[in-house]
Simulated assay, not measured.
Amino acid sequence: MSRVSNTLIGFLNLLTLLASIPIIAGGLWMTKSTTTCESFLQRPLMVVGFVILLVSLAGFIGACYHVAWALWVYLVVMLFLIATLLAVTIFGFVVVGPGGGVDVPGRAYKEYHFQNYSPWLRKRIENPNYWMSVKSCILGSKTCSKIVMWTPNDYLTGNLSPIQSGCCKPPSACNYQAPTVTQDPDCYKWNNDPNLLCYECDSCKAGVLEDVRRHWHRLSILNIVMVMLLIGIYFVGCCAFQNAKRADSYHPYGESRMYKTRPKWNFYR
């Protein structure tokens, strides 16, 4: 049993080391891609990938070669990583909890209202510099061009993504034939110009936040699974650390039980 935990922790860390490579590659791809507009998800993804790579490397070396100090570093960083993932998960559920779409009578899609989202998300998306980069990303992804040829019947039966619903059309309640002062302010921000549309509307910002909210929910569920897995690996790592310490000690099989300094070997004298 003394070797089982070392072999198991070495194998698990080899798998996580290999798994960190596509995570880092995915973060780099998201940085260069024009189809992913949630830029704040890119940097944490790359950081997590590099942390997993370094932690897995330390755990693999420590378990396979009985390097006690490498396993000690591995366990400390693992504990920090577990605590960080727990904090991020709780933060994610608190921040992205509010929101969601509102059904539109007679339509298959939903619409989204900016005031329904958390103040932290609203404050971030209202930053002019950040919103300019998000808007440029949406234009580059050609999200609205995918529905430019839709007929009125398509709008009745077709589904729209949150960004398409908020950025590519005016709110369904707008009445341009008989406008009133009580209309949604977004009705006056709408423009038929393909480069303008409703990109300055609060509904567009709400659509982006809804897209972020859905991504965060998936990440939070994944974080819960990862935390449970890391806790299991952490306990196996503790056993491997004890084995490495025992291998480095002068008494690899435990302390000697001899208590007398001058034992009597001949019991018949």
Rank of each mutant, 00 (worst) to 15 (best):
M1S: 10
R3D: 13
S5I: 08
S5D: 03
L8K: 10
L8E: 02
L8S: 03
I9R: 05
F11A: 08
F11Y: 05
A19M: 10
L28W: 10
M30D: 04
T31Q: 15
T36A: 13
T36N: 11
T36I: 10
M46P: 04
I52R: 09
V55M: 09
A58E: 02
G59K: 06
G59P: 05
C64A: 04
V67I: 09
V67M: 06
V67N: 14
A68G: 11
A70H: 01
W72I: 11
W72L: 13
V77P: 00
M78G: 00
I82R: 05
T84G: 06
L86Q: 03
T89F: 09
F91Y: 12
F93Q: 13
V96P: 10
V96L: 13
V96E: 07
G97E: 04
P98C: 01
G99V: 09
G99P: 08
G100V: 06
G101H: 00
R107F: 00
R107H: 02
H113G: 03
F114Q: 01
N116A: 08
Y117V: 00
W120L: 11
K123W: 13
Y130T: 06
W131K: 01
V134Q: 01
S136T: 09
I138S: 00
I138V: 05
G140R: 03
S141C: 07
T143R: 00
I147N: 04
M149N: 14
M149E: 14
W150Q: 05
N153Q: 12
D154Q: 07
Y155R: 02
L156S: 11
L160Q: 02
P162G: 10
S165A: 08
P170M: 05
P170Y: 05
P171K: 02
S172W: 10
Q177V: 12
Q177W: 10
A178R: 15
V181A: 14
T182F: 13
Q183M: 13
Y188S: 13
K189Y: 11
W190P: 03
W190I: 05
P194W: 05
L196Y: 14
L197D: 00
E200L: 02
D202S: 12
C204G: 08
G207R: 06
E210M: 05
D211P: 14
V212C: 14
R213V: 07
H217T: 11
H217F: 08
R218M: 09
L219V: 14
L219G: 07
S220L: 09
L222G: 06
N223V: 14
I224P: 00
V225I: 13
L229E: 02
I233R: 07
V236K: 11
C238T: 13
Q242P: 10
N243S: 13
K245E: 03
K245R: 12
A247T: 08
A247F: 06
Y250W: 12
P252C: 07
Y253Q: 15
G254H: 01
E255I: 15
E255H: 15
K264R: 08
N266I: 15
